[in-house]
Design a protein around this nucleic acid. Structure first.
Length: 865
DNA sequence: ATCTATGGCAAGCCGA
DNA sequence: TCGGCTTGCCAT
């Protein structure tokens, strides 16, 4: 027996047992490689597609619903890529000897001549480096197809013919070396709903979309994994590449009920303690423990981690190599950004939950503090980790096991809550974006839209343009942004009329920007199109024109998505006559569609988007401004009093319902956008500032927007004061209640002043919590307070990095601030805090017509000191 | 390698 | 002291 680290006394009998583990492990591996390439496979969900252009092969990862296992399907038909000169019209090849190296290459010209090439079914390849089964080998196969120097210019023609239109997340059957899509019927009632809008003959494309949403979403077998590593130094995160220290615990929590912790016996102490929540298996040899872990990982089709791409899996991989396990016997393949597992799929929930689109639109900003497993679990599961008092390396075996298991279990639960919402969302997003499971969970919205758009291009046989070419043809912007440094003009915000108003109705346009894209045929190819006849089809407020001859691709897709959400899935998700489970499923669909709708405008204004087209973004906002201005004019002509409005909403004071209905009808008829009643307020109090008001709905719910007291970075004691004040206001029913409310607020204010003066608030409630949005050395222009506090912490040896939230309090003298951890209560600068209370309260009070100074009965704060 | 947009406010920094 | 600029957070 080889001594690995420290060395153990191992009995013969134990060695036998361990060798059995190794034998079993190798058997599973062989089984995976040899048998899982079947030519007949029942209904399976397609999880991943790996193309390799240079080898002319593709590999699909299919999850078989019969046995919950992953199978591979190789396409060995060896599609050799065509050379560019085969694809392009002869005259173009002659004209440009280096083909696309020519700088001013005209993409539109190519499009016009492209029709002849349609039947060749050109599509882009997608290449994943380091695919788990090494079906190809080269990292960037484009190099093997074309001379290297062409690489950058070549992007849009590529290159490799693959005529199967596979949709990740959809169901397929494999038979005799062919892959067939499972036929899904589009339900009649859904079609009927759409026929009400589109007429009797639904377009084939729209029916395809419905099928996408009505293919069943099976429950996927999965296991969550977490590891703990020994560390001789407190709070030091071990380096995954060096993998210097032992892995001391590996925990698993599976959707099939597996609850297991593998523990390394250390210091010669034997601990065969049991735990009632999970099984513990003790190991003397770390290598055997890893083999056992690998065995478990390989037995699941889906492996879930929290930050496994960056830590757990790389650490396991490097540690295993260090302990002498051969590379090919480790079921982990490290890519540049991903850690893949074999044979299944690895989902890193850290990346998924960090995705802005998921945070904001799917989970409506329920979690937005630091994205740790703990904070996300707390927000979504209402469950958090039991804190440990000692460093990990000092825990007793049982404490360590519980701590480690807790992480794996929370990770699994994040995919299970709300009827497996997260897994279903992932599958639906895969189907919409046409991205493999690994990619959809790691990429951001601009990549999702890109993938969707590319798929639609290929389906229609369109060339996919190079972003440089779009930009050089359509890069000009004509409007000026209000905010310095922005590219073009955005939305209109009306100046609110300060004061308190009872009986206010808010109307707003239903998804204004996407509606504009749909109504105006806005897409990168239709805005500023080459046709002379379209030049007079001008977008109001801009010099841009829109094509009349061709339907815009993105405009069409966004139109479908919008209609499916607005007319089908959103109403059905609320429809009480639909059974509970189906309704929840519709809610998932509705949420997934929302993500795409909300991003559809933004991506066109983002340089990172591969179809970036500023005139499209500019036209969209211009049309938004046009719509709201026309509506205001119309409302005024009808004698409706507009108190406030922002982008797509208008606040109307005491309207009668006839007038409102007339306005809504007018909008539909004249602007072709749905204007709806969004909210009805008992009263709204405007402070006079834009994006800053407080309202109480008919239901008694209180709506507070933009006020300081609500912001995440304000100290806790002010937030709770603010909450009390808003509750007082929520109780106001009519104008007569106001005086007594003011009186209560006055008392509250005074009380808080005295509390502050007598240092009754604990230090941590006084802390401001501000995020570092850059790394410390990038703050070159100014040194804001939270950066000062961060430097103080750094001097104390703490590791401070981008994304950290710095807690600090304001003090007298010195820097003016001190990091919370370093401050004492007697250093506090009360004056600064009084000023802060003042602004907070002023915003509320001025809106209800009370002078802040009256509240205190004094003009000077100093009198309190 | 990562990234949807612009408008608005409060506070603090920093040079004139 | 003033005002422009930077920063972070929020509204839509």
């Amino acid at each position: 027996m080889k001594n690995i680290e420290g060395g153990w006394d191992i009995s013969e009998e134990k060695i036998d047992k361990m060798e059995a583990i190794e034998e079993e492990y190798l058997k599973i591996r062989r089984n995976i490689v040899e048998e899982r390439t079947k030519s007949v496979l029942g209904a399976s969900i397609l999880l991943s597609v790996i193309y390799d252009g240079s080898a002319g092969k593709a590999c699909l990862k299919l999850y078989n619903l019969d046995d919950n296992k992953i199978y591979f399907w190789f396409d060995n038909t060896n599609h050799r890529p065509y050379l560019l000169s085969d694809l392009l019209p002869e005259e173009i090849v002659k004209k440009y000897p280096q083909i696309l190296m020519h700088k001013g290459f005209n993409y539109m010209e190519l499009v016009e001549k492209y029709d002849a090439l349609r039947d060749k079914k050109i599509i882009m390849t997608k290449i994943i480096a380091n695919d788990p089964l090494s079906i190809g080998g080269s990292k960037n196969s484009i190099r093997n197809i074309l001379p290297v120097s062409w690489e950058s210019k070549i992007k849009y023609h590529l290159c490799y013919i693959y005529d199967k239109k596979l949709i990740p997340g959809m169901l397929y059957i494999v038979k005799n070396n062919r892959v067939y899509q499972v036929n899904i019927e589009a339900p009649k009632e859904i079609k009927d709903r759409l026929k009400n809008i589109y007429g009797e003959n639904l377009e084939e494309e729209l029916v395809e979309w419905i099928k996408l949403f009505h293919a069943p979403i099976p429950s996927l077998k999965r296991v969550a994994v977490d590891i703990e590593v020994f560390s001789p130094v407190r709070n030091r995160i071990p380096n995954a590449e060096e993998a210097q220290y032992s892995i001391i615990a590996i925990s698993f929590s599976g959707s099939d009920g597996l609850r297991k912790v593998l523990l390394l016996e250390r210091n010669g102490v034997k601990n065969e303690v049991k735990h009632r929540e999970f099984d513990i298996e003790y190991f003397k040899d770390e290598r055997k423990m890893l083999l056992k872990a690998f065995q478990i990982i390989m037995s699941y089709p889906i492996v879930i981690t929290f930050n496994g791409d960056n830590f757990d899996l790389p650490y396991l991989y490097h540690r295993a190599q260090k302990l002498g396990i051969r590379k090919e016997d480790i079921p982990i393949i490290l890519g540049r950004e991903y850690a893949h597992v074999v044979p299944g799929i690895h989902i890193d929930l850290y990346k998924f939950f960090n995705n802005k689109a998921i945070q904001v639109y799917a989970f409506s900003n329920k979690y937005r503090e630091i994205k740790t497993l703990d904070s996300i679990s707390l927000a979504l599961l209402n469950e958090s980790k039991v804190p440990i008092s000692k460093p990990i390396s000092e825990l007793s075996p049982i404490e360590l096991a519980s701590y480690c298991f807790q992480d794996a279990d929370l990770t699994l639960k994040l995919t299970q809550f709300d009827n497996e919402l997260v897994m279903k969302l992932i599958v639906v997003l895969m189907r919409i974006a046409k991205l493999p499971m690994e990619d959809i969970t790691r990429h951001s919205i601009s990549n999702w839209v890109k993938s969707l758009a590319y798929y639609e291009h290929r389906k229609r046989g369109f060339l996919i343009p190079n972003s440089n070419d779009i930009l050089s043809m359509k890069g000009k912007i004509y409007t000026k942004a209000v905010i310095k440094g922005k590219k073009y003009m955005g939305a209109i915000v009306l100046d609110p009329i300060p004061g308190i108003f009872f009986d206010v109705v808010v109307v707003d346009f239903a998804s204004l920007y996407p509606s504009m894209m749909k109504e105006w045929n806005l897409s990168y190819e239709t805005v500023r199109c080459p046709h002379k006849e379209c030049r007079n089809n001008i977008v109001p407020g801009t010099p841009h024109w829109v094509c009349r001859k061709r339907r815009g691709l993105l405009s069409t897709i966004i139109g479908y998505i919008r209609d499916l959400r607005v007319f089908v899935y959103k109403p059905l998700a609320k429809d009480k006559s639909v059974d509970e489970n189906t309704r929840r499923l519709y809610d998932v669909m509705q949420k997934a569609l929302k993500v795409f709708i909300n991003a559809s405008y933004g991506v066109f204004g983002s340089e990172n988007f591969s179809l970036y087209c500023p005139p499209v973004a500019e036209s969209i906002t211009a049309l938004g401004r046009y719509a709201i201005i026309k509506t205001i004019e119309r409302a005024q002509a009808m004698n409706l009093a507009i108190l406030y409005g922002d982008t797509d909403s208008l606040f109307v004071w005491r309207p009668n319902s006839e007038n409102i209905n007339e306005l809504l009808a007018w909008s539909k008829k004249e602007l072709h956008i749905d204007l709806d009643i969004d909210k009805v307020y008992k009263f709204v109090a405007f402070s006079g500032l834009k994006k800053n008001y407080l309202g109480v709905l008919r239901s008694g719910r209180i709506d507070i927007k933009g006020m300081v007291g609500k912001k995440r970075n304000t100290p806790e004691f002010i937030k709770s004061l603010f909450k009390e004040v808003s509750n007082i206001l929520a109780s106001v029913d009519n104008i007569n209640d106001i005086d007594s409310a003011i009186d209560r607020i006055r008392k509250l204010t005074k009380k808080s002043y005295i509390m502050l003066k007598n240092k009754k608030y604990p230090l941590n409630e006084l802390a401001f919590r501000v995020t570092l949005t850059k790394s410390l050395k990038e703050y070159t222009k100014t040194t804001p307070q939270h950066v000062k506090a961060a430097f103080q912490l750094k001097r104390y040896g703490l590791n401070i990095d981008i994304g950290d939230i710095i807690s600090f309090v304001k003090i007298r003298g010195g820097d003016g601030v001190k990091a919370l951890q370093l401050a004492r209560i007697d250093e506090i600068d009360e004056k600064k805090y009084l000023e802060y209370i003042e602004t907070t309260f002023r915003q509320i009070l001025e809106s209800i017509g009370v002078d802040f100074d009256d509240i205190l009965g004094t003009k000077h704060l100093d009198k309190y000191f």
